[in-house]
Design a protein around this nucleic acid. Structure first.
Lengths: 362, 362
DNA sequence: TAGCGGACTGTGTTCGTACACAGCCATTAT
DNA sequence: ATAATGGCTGTGTACGAACACAGTCCGCTA
């Protein structure tokens, strides 16, 4: 008994040859209305489902995907999306998809353009980009469209109005601010104060930081029941221990009811380290990302919550989306926000395991 | 230029035929030492990696996996693992794996045995079981081993010492208790009281409930800094509104400092509903599972945290593990604890989306 | 030295789909 | 009437790996 319905079976059932069935399936034309009707009826009746293995094997086309993102030796954060891309890459190789990585200096717009140019000189079918430089990214995307190259965005979202712009995979900054607010609101008692603190240089230019700030403030303005006060601060010179200490002392004496701080980036560990040195333990701390330094203070119970933005999945999902588009012609959701995992000392272990335990092969 | 290294290339490079290469790869013997050496060298040199597509197509073997779990019309919880299994099933069909589901009455050990017997009468290569009845499960597993059927466990873990016992996928009950304790500890102020509450009938027989209890208590005994008091209670008749109200009133008056309750199962919504009716709003509530009733009270901010045990993933991962074993001969980790996601009103959306956005095809 | 068995290796077919190509037929143009 | 055109359909081969089978070679024994 033949388990599965094959093209051959359809052909037999419809009284045509498999060539005709193939033409119908792929809409290649040159099929009479009558034959087409019979083939479709047979497919319906026998519940035909194509065998992807055989299809891919026979199609025998190889696709090339280029990735374009900041050098991760410079900023270690990017190692995570990259790792996700690599995992996905080994996974999609059997589908005839080849992934080639290009890197640029994360602080030099020019270098983005250089790497982009390099990609444009090769032959590729799609690119996965972290478009962190607005202007340069726009130029690159324009070029992609001119060369009929599909593209997806990770981490940073730039609005593009083109059929070649396939998707964005990344964080939901606003909602992560809301989430942090909720956590602090839960942990603080009435009349106490929560603070949002930026430890980055150019906050005003960083849309995602402002989004987080907005989410944080919106939450508290909508939840006044506990009468939590909120505050906002910025400090850049985290490397300068004396300055940092002075800043903290000043802040604490100015806000005696301060009990919780939300740091808007992965740099929370700087604060945790400084507080540890100063032996301050009455502050509840919330921040981002499972990088080693943060994990250290999470274990030490100096940090209470780390919001995990699933950076590996950004890369993983990005590649998989592109391959779904190229190989299976399946379109993916335009905006894909990754889960905001609430990570604590007590459940961190699971999030540190291999990101993708769902994958199928080595 | 042929992109990829094929068996034919190896053969050419080693000066043998592809038949010989095939024998070397599969250790089928009947190859001279010299030929074997040359083939292995060529594989090494050309970086040969087998084409899974072609391999599966040519192998043309179909595997059958049976699943055995409680009827989900009876207890809706089981719908989730089932859904995960179904997702995985459509995904592995192209690999020649067929999944057939068997159900039993979740309250009748005899019915487990009946369904198990049914499976044993068919021809299958592996089973995925929720072995919730200890004795009957042991009997079934014995039978599987006798018939050389591989098996994996989901949701409930029974220790088996056999090569046919492949893995367990499920929750880490102890750790989920610890996690709940940490959340309440974070939310409560000094001197306040946290309670662990069972709403199930036979707590003493339910190992996982006792584990949760242990985790909860261990956390607090190790974290005395806030001087949180803990308490334990049990109540069964959640359907009886008057009784339930009396129980709650009694508990509240007995523990005036009670501010947080951890319900050890998905039945938290019963408590939330009752508290809403009584207009009690000063209690922080932590429980399990994203079922509709719980989600309602999470949205209403009556429930603060739901710990998500990823029930869909149990099924999904279970099927994928079996297929990895059967098709790719790749062994999976013996004990696989799924992430304990901390779900709040502010991040619930992500967890309600399609569980597995990592999957590759429709 | 013929006969036999076992070690070793190459050939050919198979899986299900994709697609090139050739062939057929009816219609239109010359 | 014959040639050319175009619509439509079937045949055959390729994709890469798996495996059955047949074939070759060698050493041993009768």
């Amino acid at each position: 008994m033949s388990q599965r319905v094959r093209i051959k079976d359809i052909a037999l059932h419809a009284g045509v040859s498999k060539g005709t069935v193939d033409r119908v399936i792929h809409g290649r034309g040159n099929v009479s209305a009558e034959a087409k009707r019979r083939v479709l009826a047979a497919m319906e009746e026998l519940h035909y489902e194509p065998n992807q293995m055989a299809s891919i094997l026979a199609y025998n086309k190889t696709w090339t995907i280029a990735t374009l993102m900041p050098n991760f030796e410079q900023d270690h954060f990017w190692a995570q999306p990259h790792q996700g891309m690599e995992q996905a890459a080994t996974m999609v190789r059997d589908y005839g998809v080849k992934v080639i990585h290009y890197f640029f200096d994360g602080e030099q717009p020019n270098d983005f353009s250089r790497a982009a140019q390099q990609i444009l000189q090769t032959e590729c079918d799609a690119v996965l980009v972290a478009p962190i430089f607005l202007q340069e990214a726009h130029a690159f995307f324009d070029a992609c469209e001119a060369k009929s190259i599909w593209y997806g965005q990770v981490n940073t979202y730039i609005e593009r109005n083109s059929p070649y712009a396939l998707f964005y995979v990344g964080q939901d900054s606003y909602q992560s601010g809301v989430l942090a607010a909720k956590l602090l609101n839960f942990g603080l008692a009435e009349q106490e104060t929560a603070m949002i603190l930026h430890l980055e240089k150019s906050v005003i230019n960083a849309a995602h930081l402002l989004e987080k700030e907005k989410g944080f403030e919106d939450y508290f303005s909508q939840h006044q029941t506990n009468d939590i006060h909120t505050n906002k601060a910025s400090f850049t010179e985290v490397q300068d221990e004396r300055q940092f200490q002075k800043f903290i002392e000043y802040t604490l004496s100015n806000h005696t009811s301060l009990r919780g701080i939300f740091v808007t980036t992965s740099r929370l560990f700087h604060l945790a380290r400084q507080l540890e040195r100063m032996n301050v333990r009455h502050l509840k701390l919330v921040g981002f990302d499972l990088i080693a330094e943060n994990l250290h203070y999470l274990q030490a119970e100096q940090i209470d919550f780390l919001i995990n933005q699933n950076p590996q999945r950004q890369g993983y999902t990005g590649i998989l989306n592109l391959m779904n588009h190229l190989v299976f012609k399946k379109q993916s959701k335009a905006i894909q926000h990754l889960p905001l995992d609430v990570v604590m000392r007590e459940n961190v272990a699971h999030y540190l395991e291999d990101v993708v335990d769902l994958q199928m092969k080595l």
